[in-house]
């Protein structure tokens, strides 16, 4: 393989559920990717700044607070404003089915729900990166 994929995984909003994001980060790293984890409670502005600074191939966003329909669109908007909308965004967490479709409609590359096995997360992040 060529250079490893660089992935930023981010926790946005105020919720502190970081079990999933840490499992995903470790699975991606074990899957051969370069993984940067923002830590908790990041704002959309902080996340997009990190995306640009770290020059990543994929952005993964985790949130379980129910605020995804507010915060994810904001991140997509900021990415567009920074002309970085070609960076695929993958969302994970507790997301109701109807919002999964809505997020895809807004331009999210994939939505990975709870109970997705680690290897499948790796596969789907790679697929999202390949589709750019």
């Amino acid at each position: 393989m060529s250079t490893p994929l660089r992935v930023l995984v981010a926790k946005v909003g105020l919720d502190g559920h970081d079990r999933g994001v840490k499992v995903v980060a470790r699975a991606l790293r074990d899957g051969g990717m370069d993984v940067i984890y923002t830590g908790l409670h990041r704002t959309p502005d902080e996340v997009v700044a990190a995306v640009l600074q770290e020059d990543v191939d994929v952005l993964g966003i985790s949130l379980l607070s129910g605020a995804h329909m507010t915060l994810v669109p904001r991140i997509l908007e900021l990415l567009r404003a920074a002309r970085a909308e070609d960076i695929p965004v993958v969302v994970g967490g507790v997301i109701p089915d109807e919002d999964v479709d809505a997020l895809r409609g807004l331009g999210v590359a994939d939505v990975v729900l709870q109970d997705t096995p680690p290897d499948e997360v790796v596969r789907r992040v790679r697929a999202a990166a390949g589709a750019r």
Binding site: G13, L14, D15, H41, S65, G66, A67, T70, L71
Partner: peptide
């Protein structure tokens, strides 16, 4: 809700989208 747990008022920008949710 998350803003109350974290000590932000409902009209704080950090609370956007989280008021009364969890």
């Amino acid at each position: 809700d998350m803003p109350t747990l974290m000590g932000f008022d409902s009209d704080d920008p950090r609370s956007l989208g989280e008021v009364g949710r969890e």
